[in-house]
Simulated scan of single mutants.
Amino acid sequence: MTTSAPTIAEQVATLTEGLAARAPAEVLAPFARERADLDAGGLPAGIPTPGAPMPDGKLLDVRGEPTTLALARAGRAAVVVFYRGAWCPYCNLALRAYQQQLVPELSALGIALVAVSPQKPDGSLSMRETNELTYTVVSDPGNQVAGQLGILTAPTDAARGSQAALGVDVAGLNADGTDTLPMPTAVLVDAGGTIRWIDVHPNYATRSEPAEILAAVAAL
């Protein structure tokens, strides 16, 4: 990993400044309140701990073909990251950072990187192509895997209104027609399918940093 690369937190700070300059304050305010509430709520109860099996489900690849996490891993250890969708600017930022700062290191170790969201396959394809991602991007219709991990949330009513004002229809973009979303989460899974490390971020403007993920990989 390039040590001079900006952290995700630093990039988020820049992104936040840019959003504040472009979008009306009354549209952004509900998002800020939502993030503050998510911070106050903390981690949900029941998140699996290291040593638990990694759940799986009936997923879809970017072409809409059936797949699973097990197939995506192909017997390898993997870093599995859950994100909200291609419409989320924080997700685009984070997945680009993972491409630049994680892929070279993980590839050298034979470790897969898999990104999972509840959006339709065309959203997964858009995410991969727009950000020039070389790793696997899959759809989790109905948040099957994220639900088993206990990391689900949904926008507040006020946030839904702001999303609509920005032209974002999460329910229309999600494969199951709901606006249920995963909390941004990174999970390190060993070759046997066991969780070795998990990092859940209720506040969607924060993410697991590449350096933190690589430290977990080194411990594995």
Rank of each mutant, 00 (worst) to 15 (best):
E34T: 10
A36V: 12
A36H: 09
D37Q: 13
D37P: 01
L38V: 05
G41V: 13
G42H: 12
G42M: 12
G42R: 11
L43E: 11
L43N: 13
P44T: 07
G46D: 07
G46K: 08
I47L: 03
I47F: 05
T49M: 11
P50S: 11
G51I: 07
G51Q: 01
P53I: 05
M54Q: 14
M54C: 14
P55W: 12
G57W: 05
L59A: 11
L59T: 12
D61Y: 04
D61A: 08
V62F: 05
G64L: 04
E65A: 15
E65R: 13
P66F: 00
T67P: 10
T68V: 02
T68F: 00
T68K: 00
T68Q: 02
T68I: 01
T68N: 04
T68P: 00
A70N: 07
L71M: 11
A72F: 01
A72L: 08
A72V: 02
A72I: 00
R73Y: 03
R73I: 04
A74E: 11
G75E: 06
G75K: 06
R76E: 12
A77S: 15
A78N: 06
A78T: 06
V80T: 01
Y83T: 06
G85F: 03
G85D: 02
A86I: 13
W87G: 07
C88G: 01
C88E: 02
P89A: 09
N92L: 06
A94N: 10
L95V: 14
Y98M: 02
Q99F: 03
Q99K: 09
Q100K: 11
Q100M: 09
Q100F: 04
L102Q: 00
L102S: 00
L102D: 00
E105R: 14
E105I: 02
E105Y: 14
A108G: 15
A108M: 04
L109W: 10
I111K: 13
A112C: 02
A112M: 03
V114L: 04
A115D: 10
V116E: 06
V116P: 06
V116T: 07
S117C: 13
K120F: 04
K120M: 14
K120V: 14
K120P: 04
P121T: 06
D122E: 15
D122P: 05
G123W: 06
G123C: 06
S124Y: 03
L125G: 08
M127F: 04
E129F: 00
T130L: 09
T130K: 15
N131Q: 15
E132S: 14
E132M: 08
E132V: 09
T134N: 06
Y135D: 09
T136K: 01
V137G: 01
V137P: 09
V137T: 13
V138N: 00
D140G: 07
G142S: 07
G142R: 03
N143A: 07
V145T: 12
A146V: 07
G147T: 07
G150A: 05
I151F: 11
I151N: 11
A154G: 08
A154V: 08
A154S: 15
P155G: 10
T156V: 02
D157F: 03
D157Y: 00
A158H: 09
G161W: 03
G161T: 06
S162T: 09
Q163M: 14
Q163S: 08
Q163T: 05
A164M: 10
A164K: 14
A164E: 12
A165F: 00
L166K: 10
